[in-house]
Design a protein around this nucleic acid. Structure first.
Lengths: 215, 215
DNA sequence: TAGATTGTTAATCGATTAACAATC
DNA sequence: TAGATTGTTAATCGATTAACAATC
């Protein structure tokens, strides 16, 4: 069933290519060589060509890559050519912040619902979306063709909610809870562990200061 | 000046070790072998031992690792044994969400100030912290021993603000703006590109669906 | 002591970079 | 055609895993 199986290292670089190509496109640039893109993005031209060739040849010898075409192809690879309906579970600060972040809509990610277990929060509005009680989760997912769930609840409840989601048609969880979810294969999980990221920054900060004998 | 230079792959795993060890500690477990930790964390025992040995031997043959000791050592490596004062630049939804996230305080990251250029936002409060105008940035950093700046502003202004920060004592930028900052070496940048993360999830979701011929 | 488990070296695997023939 | 630049193979580099001697 598997195709060639692209490594996650490559996938992880695609959004950045997509961003740079979008900017090139917006500034009216028609074509670009791997060499020029390399200079811009500070990665090797070799890596750029290898990465793109994982998906078949997008370029042309002697010419380079057509910016608009490449942009659109990478968008397709990333699944941005179709709509995704998502819900946010957890209407706390972070959940509401993400719910208000309208940029995702531009990429085809449409917020359909928000959920929380706190009676205080139920009924509150984020943009046009009303916060719903957790009891309605499964029915709502069914009725609204939800395929992505964003988890912005404390770690305590996250594992259990992930299990509930596994029983629905949701096939992707964007997990902001600071815990590793254990979901059946077939459900994709992308973790955003903010405190891990902060600790990494802290490590690099402290190491640099030590190496340079700061006060 | 460089020491052994630990790879970022290893650094990236430290916070997760730290989290698991904290949980083990909290449940009263005194010691653990790389093998048992391996089962728990779903990484190889070999990798665990290699990772820890980058920093010198924390274990003991025939015994394993003392949970409390290892936890505290990794904390030190991550720089969590000292206080970090940080500011948030950009008092929008995300900035306020992060400002309200009190868990960082427990790790020694103390929010000292918030900044925004929008006159509407200036004076607003997040916890005890009042949002300040951008003009006060440099003086405030100086006066309050800030070493970390969190950037939660739109990409348009981020590059310029990063340049301003480069002239201050700030030595680490936690960047949520969707743009690559160009700072002098010596300033650490950790990017959290949420839309990149969402696109990665989208890729994996779509690939899986295609492979499994969903409707 | 015998058993367990680390620390560390060696082997493997995968990802990145270099090189160059194919070709526009 | 000559020049440019890809696509792709080969070489290198780094990270992960396996193996085992050291040692608690």
């Amino acid at each position: 069933m598997e195709e060639k199986e692209i490594s996650q290292a490559v996938i992880g670089r695609l959004p950045r290519y997509f961003r740079y190509l979008g900017e090139l496109k917006d500034s009216g640039i028609e074509r670009i060589s791997s060499q020029d893109l390399s200079g811009l993005m500070k990665v090797t031209a070799s890596q750029i060509r290898q990465d793109f060739n994982n998906f078949g040849g997008f370029g042309q010898q002697g010419y380079g890559y057509n910016v608009e075409y490449l942009y659109s192809e990478i968008g397709k690879i990333l699944g941005l050519d179709r709509l995704h309906y998502y819900i946010i579970i957890g209407a706390g600060n972070l959940g509401r912040a993400l719910g208000n972040y309208t940029n995702f809509e531009r990429r085809g990610f449409l917020l359909k619902g928000m959920f929380d277990q706190d009676p205080e929060k139920i009924g509150q509005k984020v943009r046009e979306i009303q916060v719903r009680p957790m009891e309605e989760l499964e029915d709502f997912i069914d009725a609204n063709n939800i395929d992505i769930a964003v988890l912005t609840i404390p770690k305590a409840g996250a594992v259990e909610i992930a299990e509930r989601l596994a029983g629905t048609q949701v096939r992707a969880i964007w997990n902001f809870a600071h815990v590793d979810l254990n979901v059946p294969e077939g459900i994709q999980v992308e973790n955003v562990h903010l405190s891990d990221s902060l600790m990494k920054l802290s490590y690099n900060l402290n190491r640099y200061m030590q190496e340079h004998q700061k006060a």
